[in-house]
Computed example of a mutant assay.
Amino acid sequence: MNWTQRSHALTFGFPVPHAEKVPEGYRVTWTGCRVMGILNATPDSFSDGGRHLGLDAALATARQMVAAGVFMLDIGGESTRPGSEPVDAATELDRVLPLIRALKGENALLSVDTMKPEVAAEALKAGAHLVNDVTGLRDPEMVRVCAESGAAACIMHMQGEPRTMQQQPTYSDVVGEVHSFLRGRAAEVKAAGVPSVLLDPGIGFGKTLEHNLALLRAVGDLTCGPDPVLMAASRKKTIDLIADVPKAADRDPGSFALHLHSARQGAALVRLHAAGEMVQALKVEAALAGSSR
């Protein structure tokens, strides 16, 4: 099937923008590949740290993304770059809650990018719809928060944790191990009451260049399953290692290439810093594929 015609869906236990009421709750459906825009309310993210610490600047960027056709905004208050130090829940909440509350009426799907159940719970109360957890919902409390609130969740694969994940990551079969983990976790958390999930293979999270390339080449295998797939490789070190681009902010061309490839392989969502530009790239790619979307 042409990637532009593939149908994807997420189900929630509460009303969300663009959803229809179904017996299971509220379902958002789309065809082809859509864009999740990155909104880092942190001082130390690897590519845009500090840019969106001020509420006005963050809101302006968010509204530009929505106007450009970005499908979902991913709001984070703690950096997960390699070697990053954790922050406490209070600091993270101070960064993300004002932004979530301000965007609640913008008719956009809102994701909170957090590893902490207490942050996820407060963000959902404030108006977030989805929890993007780089630890893959390994904490039973995070599963409980999502299940009891009716929030969808993104399950990501990471070997280790941010401070140490790039210290000699090792796999016998990276594609088999990562895909097995994601599918297994998806079945477990849905059985525990989480209404729906996204799967993210975690490019750059405890992987070498060779691991990342293997996973990118195998996107089509992961998208054959029942759960929509999110690919998130925006401005990552992989692009520098391939194309010699040491400054993260200069890696958007490589980011577009990686995510257009993922879209053609059936990815439902791609997560980028240059989100509005990616919407444009996908429209052109869809037209070349014979779609009028």
Rank of each mutant, 00 (worst) to 15 (best):
G276N: 13
C224M: 05
G290A: 01
M72H: 00
V87E: 05
L182R: 06
G49C: 07
G150Y: 15
K190D: 06
M72E: 01
E122P: 03
G37T: 01
A187L: 08
D200L: 05
V70E: 04
E85H: 13
S234P: 02
F256Y: 14
G266A: 12
F46M: 09
A257V: 06
T223H: 14
M65V: 00
T31W: 09
E161W: 14
E85I: 05
N132K: 00
M158H: 07
A286P: 13
V229G: 04
L109A: 03
G276M: 12
V22T: 15
R293V: 08
D113A: 04
C224D: 08
G54I: 07
L230T: 00
H129V: 07
V96I: 10
D113Q: 12
S47C: 12
N132P: 03
I75M: 03
V229Q: 05
G83T: 02
F181P: 12
A108I: 15
R6P: 04
F181T: 14
V16W: 14
L103A: 00
P246Q: 12
K247G: 06
S172G: 13
K283G: 06
L103T: 01
A263V: 10
P43Q: 11
L124V: 14
V175T: 13
S45W: 02
V96E: 08
A289V: 13
D113V: 02
V279R: 05
R251L: 07
Q265S: 15
V35N: 00
V131L: 07
A214E: 13
L53G: 04
G77D: 10
A248R: 10
N132C: 06
A232V: 13
L260Q: 05
M1V: 10
G193A: 12
D139C: 04
K237F: 14
N132Y: 03
R183Q: 04
L73Y: 08
E78Y: 13
R63Q: 15
P43A: 02
K237D: 15
H129G: 03
H273F: 08
H18S: 00
L110A: 01
R293H: 15
D88H: 11
S47M: 08
E118C: 07
D139Y: 00
R34P: 03
M72R: 04
K116I: 02
Q166D: 01
T208V: 15
A147D: 01
P140N: 04
R271W: 06
T80F: 03
T29R: 14
M1H: 09
T42M: 03
P140Q: 02
R63K: 10
K247L: 10
R251I: 07
H261T: 06
A153L: 02
V143H: 00
H259Q: 14
P140V: 04
G13L: 09
V197F: 09
A57E: 15
A57N: 13
A121V: 05
L272K: 01
E141D: 09
A151P: 09
A102P: 12
D113C: 02
G290P: 00
R264L: 03
W30S: 00
V284A: 14
A187V: 09
D200Y: 02
